[in-house]
Lab assay of single mutants.
Amino acid sequence: AVSDRLIGRKGVVMEAISPQNSGLVKVDGETWRATSGTVLDVGEEVSVKAIEGVKLVVEKLE
């Protein structure tokens, strides 16, 4: 699937994400809805860990 190529890629949070609410991330110039187990603020760099349906699962870049 086209989304599989995104796993491991870096992105930037465009709309804040929390465990309760999905947000938006931009990866390779495309905007995706994303979820995370932690709070991520706009502008934070993330990496794509998995894909669930049409949402990316991301975590903060260390």
Score class of each variant (00 low, 15 high):
residue 1 A to Y: 05
residue 1 A to P: 12
residue 1 A to V: 15
residue 1 A to K: 03
residue 1 A to S: 14
residue 2 V to C: 06
residue 2 V to Q: 11
residue 2 V to W: 06
residue 2 V to M: 11
residue 2 V to K: 03
residue 2 V to G: 06
residue 2 V to D: 12
residue 3 S to Q: 08
residue 3 S to L: 14
residue 4 D to W: 03
residue 4 D to R: 03
residue 5 R to K: 09
residue 6 L to D: 02
residue 7 I to K: 04
residue 7 I to A: 03
residue 7 I to P: 03
residue 8 G to A: 04
residue 8 G to C: 04
residue 9 R to E: 08
residue 9 R to F: 08
residue 9 R to C: 05
residue 9 R to D: 04
residue 10 K to W: 11
residue 10 K to C: 05
residue 10 K to D: 11
residue 10 K to E: 12
residue 10 K to R: 11
residue 11 G to D: 01
residue 11 G to S: 02
residue 12 V to M: 06
residue 13 V to A: 03
residue 13 V to T: 05
residue 13 V to H: 00
residue 13 V to P: 00
residue 13 V to L: 03
residue 13 V to D: 00
residue 14 M to T: 13
residue 14 M to E: 08
residue 14 M to N: 04
residue 14 M to S: 10
residue 14 M to V: 13
residue 15 E to R: 13
residue 15 E to M: 12
residue 15 E to F: 11
residue 15 E to L: 13
residue 16 A to G: 14
residue 16 A to V: 08
residue 16 A to R: 14
residue 16 A to N: 09
residue 17 I to H: 02
residue 17 I to K: 01
residue 17 I to Q: 01
residue 18 S to Q: 07
residue 18 S to K: 10
residue 18 S to M: 11
residue 18 S to N: 14
residue 18 S to I: 13
residue 19 P to T: 08
residue 19 P to R: 05
residue 19 P to V: 06
residue 19 P to I: 08
residue 19 P to G: 08
residue 19 P to A: 11
residue 19 P to N: 05
residue 19 P to S: 08
residue 20 Q to A: 12
residue 20 Q to D: 15
residue 21 N to L: 15
residue 21 N to D: 07
residue 21 N to G: 14
residue 21 N to A: 13
residue 21 N to P: 02
residue 21 N to V: 13
residue 21 N to C: 06
residue 21 N to W: 11
residue 22 S to M: 15
residue 22 S to N: 13
residue 23 G to N: 01
residue 23 G to C: 02
residue 23 G to H: 01
residue 23 G to W: 03
residue 24 L to D: 03
residue 25 V to N: 01
residue 25 V to C: 05
residue 25 V to R: 00
residue 25 V to S: 01
residue 25 V to L: 02
residue 26 K to W: 08
residue 27 V to L: 08
residue 27 V to H: 01
residue 28 D to K: 06
residue 28 D to N: 08
residue 28 D to H: 07
residue 28 D to Y: 07
residue 28 D to C: 05
residue 28 D to P: 01
residue 29 G to E: 10
residue 29 G to W: 07
residue 30 E to F: 10
residue 30 E to V: 14
residue 31 T to M: 14
residue 31 T to H: 11
residue 32 W to L: 04
residue 33 R to G: 11
residue 34 A to W: 01
residue 34 A to C: 04
residue 34 A to E: 00
residue 34 A to N: 01
residue 35 T to Q: 08
residue 35 T to H: 06
residue 35 T to W: 08
residue 36 S to Y: 02
residue 37 G to T: 12
residue 37 G to A: 12
residue 37 G to Q: 15
residue 37 G to R: 08
residue 37 G to K: 11
residue 38 T to Y: 14
residue 38 T to Q: 10
residue 38 T to L: 15
residue 38 T to H: 13
residue 38 T to C: 05
residue 39 V to P: 10
residue 39 V to T: 14
residue 39 V to E: 07
residue 39 V to R: 14
residue 40 L to N: 03
residue 40 L to Q: 06
residue 41 D to E: 12
residue 41 D to Y: 15
residue 41 D to R: 15
residue 42 V to D: 04
residue 42 V to I: 08
residue 43 G to R: 14
residue 43 G to T: 06
residue 43 G to S: 07
residue 44 E to K: 05
residue 44 E to P: 00
residue 44 E to Q: 15
residue 44 E to S: 10
residue 45 E to G: 11
residue 46 V to W: 00
residue 46 V to N: 00
residue 46 V to K: 00
residue 47 S to E: 12
residue 47 S to P: 01
residue 48 V to C: 03
residue 48 V to W: 00
residue 49 K to E: 05
residue 49 K to D: 03
residue 49 K to V: 15
residue 49 K to H: 06
residue 49 K to I: 12
residue 49 K to R: 14
residue 50 A to P: 00
residue 50 A to K: 10
residue 51 I to L: 12
residue 51 I to C: 04
residue 52 E to R: 11
residue 52 E to F: 07
residue 52 E to S: 10
residue 53 G to C: 04
residue 53 G to R: 04
residue 54 V to Y: 13
residue 54 V to L: 08
residue 54 V to C: 05
residue 55 K to C: 06
residue 55 K to R: 14
residue 55 K to Y: 14
residue 56 L to N: 00
residue 56 L to A: 03
residue 56 L to F: 03
residue 56 L to P: 01
residue 57 V to P: 00
residue 57 V to C: 04
residue 57 V to R: 09
residue 58 V to L: 03
residue 58 V to Q: 00
residue 58 V to W: 00
residue 58 V to P: 00
residue 59 E to V: 10
residue 60 K to P: 08
residue 60 K to I: 07
residue 60 K to V: 06
residue 61 L to T: 12
residue 62 E to Y: 15
residue 62 E to V: 12
residue 62 E to G: 12
residue 62 E to Q: 15
residue 62 E to D: 11
